[in-house]
Amino acid sequence: MEADKPRKTTAAASRRQFLLDSARMACGVGLLGIGIGLYAKQAKALPPLALRPPGAQAEQGFLGACVRCGLCVRDCPYDILSLAKPEEPVATGTPYFVARQLPCEMCEDIPCVKACPTGALDHQLTDINKAKMGLAVLVDQENCLNFLGLRCDICYRVCPVIDKAITLEQQLNARTGKHALFIPVVHSDACTGCGKCEKACPLEAAAIKVYPTELAKGEPGKHYRFGWVEKDKAGGSLVAPDVEHRYNLPEGQRYESGRGLNPDAGSEAAPGTQPAVPRALQGGKL
């Protein structure tokens, strides 16, 4: 009995010591972990100017999938990608490019995606025209030369998906009253976010910029229904029989039930010949 007592106290003391040591470790390392965790949360916010290579998953998934090996950087034939250094505002070691400095050349065989060993760059992407690295936005309508009535058109001309990702839409130049404006309009279904337009914009700071898609795009409310879309779907008016408009129509146009405004038969060329010519070159036919 007497001999048992000290052993018991030693066991209790060592258990106490063990718990104390464990608590010390858990608290110290936990503190470090919270610091890194909060930093990781910040690091998820990719700055708008940094673009991921083609096929990159959304930022959250990408930062779990990318092992920072740099094989995409190595296999990019144009040396466009670089791995983020610790002081840069992109998650350390991950690949990115800045369109204004060097845009993606959109290689047809997409070597960067093929090189990725983890699928952080999605191997399902085999057609570079389907890449979504971001979305071009004409952010500055005040300084864009085309908006000022000049025929700059550079963004339109350098676009690898010419006449699909950016089209020029003709408007009246209200300043002169007799000239046209050719407004570059980006179409999100065709834009790959390669950044060629941003790189080529001749302004001191680009008027057109590529932003991450979720920043660049709006989204209508889920409950929105557009009358003309619904009408198309239903094959006819859903509210009341379409009334045929006959008065105050634009010159040379007539209103057809179900089709809307149409040129008078015989007054223009046959509509079937239009799509072969880029929209910008169709003159007043927009």
Binding site: V29, G30, L32, G33, I36, G37, Y39, A40, K41, A43, K44, Q60, G61, L63, G64, C66, V67, R68, A91, T92, G93
Partner: peptide, 16 residues
């Protein structure tokens, strides 16, 4: 801690 961070943040946080 690094493994818990990967699980909790969904990113390879330790690589930062």
């Amino acid at each position: 801690m690094t493994l818990v961070l990967a699980l909790a943040t969904g990113t390879i946080a330790w690589e930062l």
